[in-house]
Amino acid sequence: MLTRELSSYITQMVVPGWDNTKKVNFQPISGGSINQAFRINFDKGSYFCKVNSATKFPQLFEKECQGLLQINKQGGIKVPQIIHCFEFLEYQVLILEWISTGNKDKDFWERFGKQMAALHHISNEYFGFLDNNYMGSVTQSNEPSLDWNNFFYRSRLQPIISKCFNANLLTQKHVLHFERLLIKLPEVFGEGQLPALVHGDLWSGNFMCNKDSEPVLIDPAISYAHPSVDLGMSTLFGGFNQRFYDSYQYYNPLPLNYKEQWEVANLYPLLIHLFLFGSGYLGQIEQTLYKY
Rank of each mutant, 00 (worst) to 15 (best):
M1L: 06
L2V: 09
L2K: 04
R4M: 13
E5C: 10
E5L: 14
L6H: 02
I10C: 00
N20T: 02
K22M: 12
K22W: 02
K23R: 12
K23F: 08
V24M: 06
Q27P: 02
I29M: 00
Q36F: 13
F38L: 11
I40D: 05
N41E: 15
N41H: 15
F42Q: 05
F42T: 09
G45Y: 09
G45N: 09
S46R: 14
F48V: 02
V51N: 00
V51F: 00
S53G: 10
T55W: 06
T55D: 10
F57W: 15
P58Q: 06
P58W: 07
F61Y: 12
E62Q: 13
E64C: 06
C65Y: 00
G67F: 03
L68K: 03
L68F: 00
Q74V: 06
G75K: 01
G76S: 05
K78D: 15
F88I: 03
L89I: 14
V93E: 05
L94C: 00
L94I: 02
G102V: 02
K104N: 07
D105H: 09
D107Y: 12
D107S: 13
E110I: 14
R111L: 10
R111Y: 00
R111P: 02
M116E: 10
A118V: 03
A118K: 12
L119W: 09
E125R: 11
E125A: 12
F129I: 08
F129Q: 04
Y134Q: 08
M135I: 15
G136Q: 05
Q140F: 06
S141H: 15
P144I: 01
L146P: 05
W148I: 03
N150D: 14
N150A: 15
N150H: 15
F151A: 03
F152L: 07
S155N: 15
L157R: 07
I160Y: 11
S162H: 13
C164F: 05
N166G: 11
N166D: 14
A167M: 06
N168I: 01
L169R: 11
L169H: 09
L169V: 04
L169A: 10
T171D: 02
K173H: 11
K173R: 10
V175S: 01
F178E: 01
F178W: 00
R180I: 00
I183S: 12
P186D: 12
P186N: 09
F189T: 11
Q193E: 10
P195A: 01
L197G: 00
G200R: 04
G200L: 11
G200N: 03
G200I: 03
W203H: 13
W203N: 12
N206W: 04
D212E: 13
S213G: 09
L217R: 01
L217I: 02
L217S: 01
I218P: 01
D219C: 03
S223E: 04
S223L: 05
A225S: 15
H226E: 06
S228T: 10
L236N: 03
G238V: 03
F240M: 04
Q249R: 13
L254P: 08
L254N: 09
N257C: 00
K259N: 13
E263L: 09
A265M: 12
Y268M: 09
P269S: 05
L271V: 08
L271H: 10
H273C: 07
L276F: 06
G278V: 08
G278F: 07
S279F: 12
G283N: 14
G283I: 13
I285D: 10
Q287L: 09
T288D: 01
L289A: 04
Y290E: 12
Y290H: 13
K291Y: 09
Y292I: 10
